[in-house]
Design a protein around this nucleic acid. Structure first.
Length: 268
DNA sequence: CTCCCGTCCTGTGGGC
DNA sequence: TGCCCACAGGACGGGA
């Protein structure tokens, strides 16, 4: 499940392989409504590769290629398809003989060409909250926002309070901030703890080149390294790194949620 | 408008 | 051993 650190790692890997190259006619290996208007970008040159939350944005000048990797999406830029790409969805030749390969086992990923900056057809991107590692993700605005929420984990996953947090880093940040995922409105101190925790877990995730829980690979097909540093995610029954209480897994916001029942008591 | 929940998809693993 | 089914989850969209 690529979240902000994984997508940022892929962006850094692919940037030098894509910028300056011209997209040719894409080949669709499968029919999927998640892959929209790709033919519109045939002939466009890739001018830049940026990231917004979990979305990759390839700047095509008048247009933009928007990529969301979903659960299992993988990208590679090379002449032949990586042998591990057993579910190829789109292969997109570039003008230097290399190919942008998109592989997606569970097909929750999105590939969409839009007019540059026109995100109206992509609701989550359109309403995306501030970049967590940017200056406009400030504690004051965040505290105001989380003072109104019904469930803090659902709010984090919505992308509207802050960009790029998914299930893994939500659990990690909530544990670091000592907040139960089912908590409602947060007070000022709690909000400041969570704000700092989000920055820390995402920053460390990038430094470790992402978390490979199962499927994630970087832009060169390599595993991430952050899984060795996870505090609670997928550590059910293992001791809390703070107090040694066994980590439990519960359902919050329709998602599996890992937490320490001592550090993250529901009432605190 | 917001909130909640079903839907999409396939590999995996537990139960029998 | 082999089969079946529940489960995993990001974003969307329909209904309340």
């Amino acid at each position: 499940m690529p979240e902000l650190p994984e997508v940022e790692t892929i962006r850094q890997d692919l940037l030098p392989l894509l910028v300056g190259k011209r997209l040719q006619t894409p080949f669709r290996h499968i029919v999927d409504p998640h892959h929209r208007n790709l033919e519109r970008a045939a002939g466009d040159r890739i001018l830049g590769l940026s990231r917004r939350g979990k979305y990759l944005l390839a700047d095509l000048g008048a247009r933009e290629l928007v990529i969301h990797l979903g659960m299992t999406g993988q990208l590679a830029v090379q002449a032949a398809p990586p042998p591990t790409f057993r579910h190829p969805c789109v292969s997109w030749p570039l003008d230097d003989g290399s190919v942008l390969w998109f592989n997606d086992q569970r097909r929750f990923g999105w590939l969409v060409v839009v007019d540059r900056g026109d995100h109206a057809s992509i609701p989550t991107l359109h309403r995306m909250g501030p970049e967590p590692l940017g200056a406009d993700f400030d504690p004051e605005s965040f505290a105001t926002a989380v003072a109104r929420v019904r469930g803090i984990k659902a709010a984090l996953l919505s992308q509207r309070l802050v960009a790029g947090v998914g299930n893994i880093y939500a659990d990690e940040a909530l544990h670091l901030a000592r907040l139960h995922p089912g908590r409602g409105a947060l007070d000022r101190h709690e909000a400041e703890r969570l704000h700092a925790a989000i920055r820390q877990v995402l920053g460390h995730g990038i430094l470790h080149r992402g978390t490979t829980f199962k499927d994630y690979r970087d832009g060169m097909g390599r595993y991430g390294g952050n899984q060795a540093f996870l505090r609670v995610f997928d550590r059910t029954g293992e001791p809390c790194p703070v107090c040694q209480t066994p980590i439990v897994k519960i359902r919050v916001a329709q998602r599996g949620s890992h937490l320490c029942p001592t550090c993250q008591s529901p009432g605190a």
